[in-house]
């Protein structure tokens, strides 16, 4: 049973990353009408920023500040990308956004691979979160528990921001009808830029969280983003809460598969995607697209 709980925990952690990433994808798609292929690369950048902050001799900034600094740095980088490139795609077919961000992902990952190779760089767990707790039925490494709880809090905070606040109301309105919202005197282009920064920042945050668990690698986001795409197809991008729930649920299912049938753990999300498409083509929570 210990092994089952351990795999469930791994599943929950992966689920946190799926949720954070698919949430960002959904928010970005809503405002920019772009599927951000660079999301995995920016997730990786988040982990690398944390790594630099810690290992630079002049800075040696630890995990806790990195948790805030890395998403901001990557978010600003993302906003620069949006201002200089993505904004010119308005009005073009969706697929150009996919192609452009795919190109950006290749550039970012290629540059990091050139300087750091493909092997993983270790990132230590912060002192406060070292060790573990015995819960009676299983041994819980504190850091892993922290990742799950913190991700869940961030996801819910994002949901609250978008669904329950004034700013979120503007955002949702601009998603529905940007021209009309603009006519009311709201600076929609600036909101689009900030939205991209927010979505990308969430990806970078996931990157920092994963650094102590999965090591820091230039290609850490390359395969992950494809799984997240499958998650997005399953859940649909119409609902924020839908993205969160689907992300966590698929992580748990993946964890269970690792325990019961490890050979299929890589593929189970894709197989589920196929099944969902056959049964309910619009996705579990999505609107028809």
């Amino acid at each position: 049973m210990q092994a089952l709980y351990a795999q469930l925990l791994v599943g929950l952690i992966n689920g946190s990353f799926y949720a954070l990433l698919s949430l960002g994808l959904a928010v970005i798609f809503g405002m920019l009408n772009i599927i951000n292929f660079a999301h995995g690369a920016l997730y990786m950048m988040g982990a690398f920023v944390a790594y630099f902050l810690l290992n630079n001799d002049y800075l040696s900034i630890g995990y806790w500040p990195a948790l805030i600094i890395a998403p901001i740095v990557v978010g600003i980088f993302g906003m620069i990308l949006e201002r200089t490139m993505l904004q010119w795609l308005t009005g073009l077919d969706h697929l150009y956004g996919l192609l452009l961000t795919f190109g950006l992902a290749l550039i970012i990952q290629g540059v990091f691979q050139n300087y750091f190779g493909s092997s993983g760089l270790p990132y230590a767990i912060p002192d406060q979160l070292k060790g573990g707790m015995n819960l009676g039925f299983m041994f819980l490494p504190i850091y892993r528990g922290w990742v799950v709880v913190f991700s869940l809090v961030v996801c819910l905070a994002t949901w609250f921001l978008i669904e329950k606040t004034q700013l979120g109301a503007y955002l949702r309105a601009a998603t529905e009808n940007p021209t009309l919202v603009r006519a009311f005197g709201i600076n929609v282009p600036r909101m689009i830029t900030l939205t991209y920064g927010l979505g990308v920042g969430l990806a970078a945050l996931a990157g920092v969280l994963s650094a102590p668990i999965n090591q820091v690698r230039p290609l850490m986001g390359a395969d992950l983003i494809i799984v997240v795409f499958a998650v997005v197809v399953i859940g649909g991008m119409g609902s924020i809460m839908g993205s969160i729930i689907t992300g966590f649920a698929l992580g748990v299912i993946e964890g269970l598969t690792k325990y019961f049938y490890p050979e299929a753990s890589n593929t189970v999300v894709f197989v589920l995607m196929v099944l969902v498409l056959l049964v309910k083509p619009t996705g579990l929570t999505g609107r028809a697209a």
């Binding site: 490139m85 795609l89 150009y96 192609l99 452009l100 795919f102 190109g103 950006l104 992902a105 290749l106 550039i107 970012i108 990952q109 290629g110 540059v111 691979q113 050139n114």
Partner: peptide, 15 residues
Amino acid sequence: QWVTVIQGAIFVICV
């Protein structure tokens, strides 16, 4: 790996 970077750049420029 610079080939990958160049390919990415071509994507961006083309789009």
